[in-house]
Measured scan of single mutants.
Amino acid sequence: ADFLSNDDYAVYVRENIQVGMMVRCCRAYEEVCEGDVGKVIKLDRDGLHDLNVQCDWQQKGGTYWVRYIHVELIGY
């Protein structure tokens, strides 16, 4: 899907992401590398560009918070 802005994409992720879902990092962020796959373990839905998504990352080996714009949804 094509999104006009980071805000549009962040809204899409916020409306669709669920705890337990698998996500792929589509934009490297601090300790999380692009392409790493993680399981969503906690969500904080306050802002669009806060650290909203806590995942247990496979490559990184452990949990880390990222923003909506850092992840793509790959289902369960």
Rank of each mutant, 00 (worst) to 15 (best):
R45F: 11
D56K: 14
I41Q: 03
N6G: 14
V13E: 06
D44R: 14
Y12G: 09
T63R: 11
R67V: 07
G20Q: 04
V13T: 03
V71W: 00
I17D: 12
M22G: 10
D46I: 03
N52Y: 14
C25W: 01
V11R: 15
Y29R: 03
Q59N: 06
I74K: 04
R67Q: 15
L48C: 11
H49K: 07
I74F: 07
D2S: 12
Y68I: 01
C26W: 04
I17V: 08
L43D: 03
K39N: 09
V32P: 00
D46T: 15
S5N: 13
W65C: 05
E72S: 14
Q18A: 10
Q59E: 15
D50W: 02
W57K: 02
H49F: 12
Y68P: 14
G61H: 09
H49M: 06
D56I: 05
V23A: 00
G20T: 08
C26M: 13
S5F: 03
A1V: 15
R14Q: 15
D2P: 10
A10G: 08
Q18T: 12
D44P: 00
L73I: 09
E30P: 06
N16L: 10
K39P: 00
D2C: 11
N6P: 14
R45P: 10
V71Y: 00
V19M: 03
E30V: 12
V23W: 03
L43G: 00
V19R: 02
Q58N: 06
T63P: 07
A28W: 04
R67I: 02
D2H: 15
V11T: 14
G47C: 06
A28Q: 13
Q58G: 09
C55M: 00
K60I: 09
D46R: 12
Y64R: 08
Y68N: 10
E34C: 03
D50H: 10
V32W: 00
V13S: 00
I69K: 13
C25T: 02
G35N: 15
V37L: 12
C55I: 03
G61E: 10
N16M: 09
E15W: 03
L48F: 08
C55V: 15
G61D: 07
Q58D: 14
N6Q: 05
Y29H: 14
E15I: 00
M22E: 15
R14C: 08
S5T: 11
V23Q: 14
V32C: 02
V11S: 13
I17P: 08
I17T: 01
C33A: 12
V40K: 03
V32A: 01
M21W: 06
V40D: 03
N6D: 13
D44F: 15
I41Y: 04
A28V: 04
A10I: 07
Y9F: 04
K60L: 13
Y9A: 07
W65N: 10
V13Q: 03
C33T: 10
N6Y: 10
C26S: 13
Y64M: 13
I74W: 06
M21L: 06
E31N: 12
C33I: 09
D7Y: 08
I74G: 14
V11G: 14
N6M: 15
R24Q: 03
R27V: 13
R24F: 05
L4A: 13
W57T: 07
V13R: 01
D8H: 09
L43M: 04
G62I: 11
I41G: 00
V32K: 01
Q58V: 14
R27C: 12
G35W: 02
H70Y: 03
G20S: 04
G20E: 01
D56C: 09
R45W: 12
D46Q: 15
H70V: 04
Y76F: 11
M21E: 06
V19E: 14
V40H: 01
N6V: 13
V37F: 12
V19N: 04
S5W: 05
L43S: 00
R45H: 15
V71Q: 02
I17A: 03
H49W: 06
Y29I: 11
L43P: 00
D7S: 12
I17Q: 04
E31F: 07
L48P: 14
R67A: 11
G61Y: 05
D50T: 08
V66L: 06
Y64Q: 11
N6I: 14
G47I: 08
R67G: 13
C55K: 02
G62M: 06
D8K: 12
G38E: 00
Y76R: 14
I74S: 11
H70P: 00
G62L: 07
Q58E: 10
F3L: 10
C55N: 01
V37H: 03
E72P: 00
C33D: 07
E34Q: 08
R14P: 01
Y29E: 00
L43I: 11
E72K: 04
R24V: 04
G20I: 06
W57P: 05
G20N: 05
V23R: 01
T63N: 05
M22Q: 15
D46N: 15
A10V: 02
C33R: 14
H49V: 04
G75W: 06
E15L: 03
S5Y: 06
I74C: 12
R67L: 01
R45G: 12
D50Q: 10
R24K: 11
D50C: 08
D44G: 10
C55T: 11
F3A: 02
E31S: 12
V32S: 01
L4C: 12
C26F: 08
D2Q: 07
G38A: 02
L73A: 02
V71D: 02
Y68F: 04
E72M: 06
G35K: 04
W65P: 06
G20Y: 03
L73T: 01
F3W: 06
R67Y: 00
Y76S: 15
V19G: 00
L51V: 08
L43C: 07
D7N: 11
K60F: 12
V23N: 01
L43R: 00
Q59Y: 09
G62W: 00
D36G: 01
V11Q: 11
V53L: 05
Q58F: 07
F3P: 14
E30N: 08
G35V: 01
Y68H: 08
N52A: 06
E30I: 00
V11A: 15
K39G: 00
H70W: 00
A1D: 13
S5D: 13
R45V: 07
D8M: 06
G61P: 09
G62E: 07
L48T: 12
L51Q: 02
R14Y: 06
T63M: 13
D2I: 14
A1S: 14
E30L: 03
V23S: 10
M22N: 10
N16V: 05
Y9M: 05
K60R: 12
E15D: 09
L4E: 15
I17E: 01
R24H: 15
D36R: 02
Y12W: 07
Q18D: 09
V40Y: 00
Y9I: 03
Q18E: 07
C26L: 12
M22D: 07
W65T: 10
E15G: 08
V71S: 00
G20R: 04
T63I: 08
K39Q: 11
L73Q: 03
R14N: 15
G47E: 11
D7T: 11
I17C: 05
Q18F: 07
A28P: 10
G61N: 04
D2T: 11
L48K: 10
K39M: 14
R14M: 10
F3S: 08
D2Y: 13
Y64N: 04
D56S: 15
V19T: 08
V66P: 00
H70D: 14
E15T: 11
R24C: 02
V71A: 07
N16H: 11
I74R: 10
C55F: 02
D56A: 14
G35L: 02
V37A: 05
V71P: 03
H49C: 15
D44I: 04
